[in-house]
Each structure stands twice: as structure tokens, then as C-alpha cells.
């Protein structure tokens, strides 16, 4: 039941990503290219996703627990630190270079496009590199959570 439901939720997400244009780097990069070939479509993706999630979450959080679990896994409130801002800035630089973000690329794997697979391979390598880097920072006495 959990697996089937997870699959269906993934499918809805993946369908939403490809319909919206988030899986298409040309469209994503044009959204950010206000000074050039601007395509404002992605504002509508974020708008649609945010409206539905904002309202839906408020209904869901009236419950004490999720339907198939004991607890909501929500990130503990933490301070806004250099790690958050630095990491997000680095993510933005990579997104601007490649045109794919993780949520856009993962569903696009299903097209079998070799360029998607190359991006995802590099993404996974970057995740492991960051964990390695985290451990080095940790041994220097800085708190690490990722």
C-alpha cells in the first residue's frame, strides 16, 4: 500500500514536472533570462504548486498524524546560517549553468535522454562530494547536519 501510493504520488509529481516545463532546461533558463529570451511560464508553475500546497498543507496539518504513519517529518526550526545561504547560492549557480534542478531532472530520466542521465550522474557525484566535504568541516569543529 505504501509502495503503491508512493509510486502514484511520484507519478503525479513527474507528470506535473513534464507538463509544466520544469524538465526542459531551455524553458527553465529562459525564465531566468529576463534580459534576453524571457519566458515567464515558470512563475505559473511555482504559483500553481504553492497555492495548492499552501491550502492542502493547512488541511493536512489539522490531523495529529499522517494516514500511514505516526508522525509528520518536518525539518526542525533552525537558524538561518551561512550553510543555508551558501548552499542555496551554490545550487543557484549550478542550476544557471546546467538548466536542470533535481526535481526537474529526476522525472526526465524517464525520457531516456542521455543528457539527463549525465546531469543526474554529476548530481549524485556532487551529493557525495558534499557529504565528504561536510565530514572534513565537521572534524574542524563545525556542526554539520546534511
Amino acid at each position: 500500500m505504501r509502495l503503491f501510493l508512493s509510486y502514484i504520488i511520484g507519478l503525479i509529481f513527474g507528470l506535473g514536472i513534464v507538463i509544466s516545463g520544469m524538465a526542459n532546461p531551455a524553458k527553465v533558463l529562459n525564465f531566468f533570462d529576463v534580459a534576453g529570451t524571457w519566458d515567464p511560464s515558470l512563475a505559473f508553475v511555482m504559483g500553481g504548486a504553492l497555492i495548492v500546497t499552501f491550502i492542502g498543507y493547512r488541511i493536512v496539518f489539522r490531523r495529529q498524524e499522517p494516514l500511514l504513519g505516526q508522525t509528520f517529518f518536518l525539518p526542525a526550526p533552525k537558524a538561518i546560517d551561512a550553510r543555508l545561504i551558501g548552499g542555496s547560492a551554490v545550487f543557484g549557480i549550478g542550476w544557471g549553468i546546467a538548466g536542470f534542478c533535481p526535481g526537474g531532472a529526476l522525472p526526465a530520466i524517464g525520457t531516456g535522454d542521455s543528457r539527463v542521465l549525465m546531469f543526474v550522474g554529476a548530481l549524485v557525484a556532487g551529493i557525495f562530494a558534499a557529504r565528504f566535504l561536510s565530514r572534513i568541516l565537521e572534524t574542524r569543529g563545525q556542526p554539520v547536519t546534511a
Binding site: 548552499g87 542555496s88 547560492a89 551554490v90 545550487f91 543557484g92 549557480i93 549550478g94 542550476w95 544557471g96 549553468i97 546546467a98 538548466g99 536542470f100 534542478c101 533535481p102 531532472a105 549525465m118 546531469f119 543526474v120 550522474g121 554529476a122 548530481l123 549524485v124 557525484a125 556532487g126 551529493i127 557525495f128 562530494a129 558534499a130 557529504r131 566535504l133 561536510s134 546534511a146
Partner: peptide, 10 residues
């Protein structure tokens, strides 16, 4: 870009 995204999102 993919490698940098992986570092940044982590």
C-alpha cells in the same frame, strides 16, 4: 552544473 547543484542542495 550537475556537480555544483549536488553540492549546493546538500
Amino acid at each position: 552544473g550537475g556537480f555544483i547543484v549536488g553540492i549546493g542542495v546538500t
